[in-house]
Nucleic acid binder design. Structure first.
Lengths: 137, 137
DNA sequence: TGATAATTATTTGTATGCAAAGTATAATGC
DNA sequence: GCATTATACTTTGCATACAAATAATTATCA
């Protein structure tokens, strides 16, 4: 079959391009798209564990470890050992990570509009719904 | 905005999942999805240069370098210095890389069907068209 | 022709991603 | 209680990706 009909090829091409756009826009405030995902979940509930973040973001736990390490180096978040279960870790927002929420939200809104500017509202919804379905494989 | 409405998030989630499926299926014959893309273009025209492969696959030239190095180690392709332009390189299929075409084509067909099994034919086309459009950013 | 610019590919550095192995701690079962 | 399991996280190894810097070669043009 032609590669232009291969769903993995098309998804990868689209993801690389869109992710580059988001990465460029988010670099204004020194974070990456993947780091945004963890910040987003922590804004909703501070003190989540790495495994909870892995579940919420559908990423592997070892991926979370790396992300958190780099985010700690940038003073966005802080890891604290859990009191009740010494295996556990809780991740807390630091001041920088908490304060950036509005700025980052703006960048995300803007980036979405930019990526989808050629799509009508109903086309956007169709695309998003299809992506949600295919991600449930 | 909710992260479930963020196009970069949705594209990334879908791409990771679908790519894992393709990666698992392609591992039968020892290649990866990214390596498949280069093989595909070489099946169409042997002896392409790294920059041509970069243009055809919409990947950065430095990404192609790494892919080719790993593909050479597996005796899939071979780099030869260009005769007319000593800066240039031409990439040629080796026997293993050439012979695998039919097997790999089968795996790609199967993987596509698997990834899209919950989609009607017209939904598949709509999704693919949307992905093509968004990748042109 | 000889310096400067452009082109081609690679190298280096950074950031994701997963899988598999390793570590520390807690839970279970005999 | 103590050995076995299970859980939570990290480490290591591999494969993509891009950006920026390098190296080698070719083209331009003054």
């Amino acid at each position: 079959m032609k590669i232009e009909e291969c769903i993995n090829y098309l998804l990868t091409q689209a993801q690389i391009k869109v992710n580059l756009l988001f990465k460029k826009n988010l670099s204004e405030c020194g974070i990456t798209p993947a780091q945004y995902i963890l910040l987003y979940h922590l804004w909703g509930e501070d003190g989540l564990s790495p495994s909870q973040l892995a579940a919420l973001s559908a990423l592997d736990a070892s991926t979370i470890t790396g992300l958190l390490t780099r985010m700690e180096e940038k003073a966005l978040v802080e890891r604290r050992h859990s009191q009740d279960d010494r295996r556990g870790v809780n991740v807390f927002l630091m001041e920088r990570g908490a304060k950036m929420q509005r700025e980052i939200d703006g960048i995300i809104e803007r980036s979405n509009a930019q990526a989808l500017e050629l799509f009508e509202e109903d086309e956007q919804q169709l695309l998003k719904n299809s992506l949600k379905r295919i991600a449930k494989i």
